[in-house]
Amino acid sequence: MDQNKDCSGRRDFIKKTTALTALSIVPASLLKAGEKNEAIATFIEKAPLKLEINGKPYSLTVDPRMSLLDMLREQVGLTGTKKGCDQGHCGSCIVHVDGKRVNSCLTLATENNGAKITTIEGLADGDNLHPMQEAFIRHDAFQCGYCTPGQIMSAVACVKEGKANSPEEIKEYMGSNICRCGAYPNIVEAILDVKKSGAKV
């Protein structure tokens, strides 16, 4: 309880300080509580953000509370990246940020200013699938397909990181990608196959 009070106190403080800036521009006395909040929000909920997604530049205005995942899905409309838990447990939301795999649910959109993001939609070269995508199909490395974008993005990174030399190593380095349908053995085979083929990932 006390903790809550503390929190709300701190929140109120932030709100008030931000409100000061906002209200210096808006004639506050004319607004009702809800409208006042809305007016304040128009200032604080619009953070500018520039980044590159799948090779394309984007200039966005985002809610600072928005995760990279929600930005991709709800604002940019790239729904290939999936939300499976929003807590960093399942790995469905893995994308590449500047070449590294990242749980996009655990990073705020605004933290990625200037970053180069690759999502599952950006993996294929036009109609030519990425070797990992092909391998996943050939090895039937999914059933429902929901965790698949995250598994594939993670798998590509796993090979790039040089951590795909044996089934044991692959399992370890794919440890943060959950597949509830249980396609694990097929996923490991797909990754090994790509690694052994020497295909460029």
Binding site: T79, E121, N128, L129, F136, G145
Partner: peptide
């Protein structure tokens, strides 16, 4: 179907949709 690749008869018909992120689940 991807014109660039011929998959075997055994592969899933919705495989390409699922590996490219094009498959639309409810929240998509």
């Amino acid at each position: 179907k991807s014109p660039a690749i011929q998959f075997a008869d055994d592969d899933r018909v919705d495989g390409i949709a699922k590996v490219t992120g094009r498959a639309k689940y409810t929240a998509d």
